[in-house]
């Protein structure tokens, strides 16, 4: 336990959680795309109290991504269109090694433009030493007319199955709510042998500057995250937990311990924190963990297990 942790022993006990075999000292996880491109940055977040960290989505080759503006603040949230910028899987081993010095599970987020690419990157990330994989399915399958993996059951099943068959570490699929039926997609993941799902990825969105008369993001369209998407995310978690046997990681607008508790009560076993870092700094993980513990004490919950799924009727 790092020095200066507010409620040392009790926190370790009360906030411990596990998800698909990963043991977390507290249920806060750094979301993919936030401070995850460089090993020393991931290690810093781990040491600042995150229960686990997820890397930036890594692909087969280095990509510079879209032009700026790539991230902008709007009312109640943030818009981003980074464009899968990443240094490429072959150069990422050193970063993973550094990240692991943080002493918490390191989850490697990966993407590909084909099933074959996903499998190739998955294998390399496993070799780099990540503790689990998170599949960023919100990217187009170039071979199949650019349909997003995350939006059809068939493509989701195919890619999850192929990755599962090729690695021996846990595989988590990150799902989007930009689909007709997120539960159906989650069920496809389950059939493919997926170990857990993260719900949800950002929601498709745009900001137009009316003075300039054009969209602000370099890519024009981007993904919405932050407090404004939390209710959508909570509903997705709730339904997936109800309809499948999959462990779920909640993601979308977690800024406070109360937000995290909401996700846990919906049935999530852990929560990811992303743009909350902009509002509360890198210390947000320790703060949220402390706030969850405080809530539990105030309301008579003795362990996280009692909290998880409490709102499932």
């Amino acid at each position: 336990m790092p020095a200066g942790y507010p409620h040392q022993n009790s926190v370790v006990f009360m906030l411990e959680t596990d998800i698909c075999g990963l043991r977390l000292e507290n249920p806060t996880i750094l979301a993919s795309g936030i401070l995850g491109n460089v090993g020393s940055s991931l290690r810093r977040v781990a040491r600042a109290g995150a229960g686990a960290v997820v890397t930036k989505s890594i692909g087969k080759q280095a990509r510079e991504g879209y032009k700026n503006p790539t991230v902008i603040k709007i009312e109640q949230g943030y818009l981003n269109a980074i464009g899968l910028a990443n240094p490429g899987v072959d150069d990422f081993g050193e970063e993973i090694k550094t990240a692991k010095e943080g002493g918490v599970p390191v989850i490697g987020s990966i993407f590909g433009f084909s099933v074959r690419e996903f499998v190739s990157v998955a294998g390399k990330m496993e070799d780099h030493g990540v503790d689990a994989l998170e599949l960023n399915l919100s990217c187009p399958n170039v071979g199949k007319a650019g349909a997003f993996f995350s939006t059809t059951e068939e493509l989701t099943y195919e890619v999850v199955k192929a990755v599962k068959d090729s690695v021996s570490i846990p595989v988590i699929a990150k799902l989007t709510a930009n689909t007709g039926d997120i539960v159906a997609i989650a069920k496809a993941c389950e059939r493919a042998g997926c170990d857990a799902v993260t719900a949800i990825n950002t929601l498709k969105a745009m900001k137009i500057d009316i003075v300039a008369g054009m969209p602000v993001l370099g890519n024009k369209i981007g993904g919405l995250s932050g407090p404004c998407i939390k209710p959508v995310a909570v509903a997705s978690v709730y339904e997936i937990v109800k309809e499948t046997g999959l462990p779920v990681i909640g993601c979308g607008g977690v800024t406070t311990g109360e937000d995290a508790v909401e996700f846990l009560m919906a049935g999530a076993r852990a929560v990811q924190i992303g743009v909350g870092v902009a509002d509360r700094g890198i210390g947000i993980f320790r703060k949220v963990a402390g706030e969850i513990e405080e809530f539990m004490k105030d309301h008579g919950y003795r362990s996280l297990e009692e909290l998880i799924g409490a709102a499932q009727g």
């Binding site: 795309g33 936030i34 940055s41 700026n68 991230v71 981003n80 980074i82 870092v277 902009a278």
Partner: peptide, 9 residues
């Protein structure tokens, strides 16, 4: 990229 301490670039 972001200028607000979240992207990690």
């Amino acid at each position: 990229k972001c200028g607000i301490g979240i992207c990690g670039a």
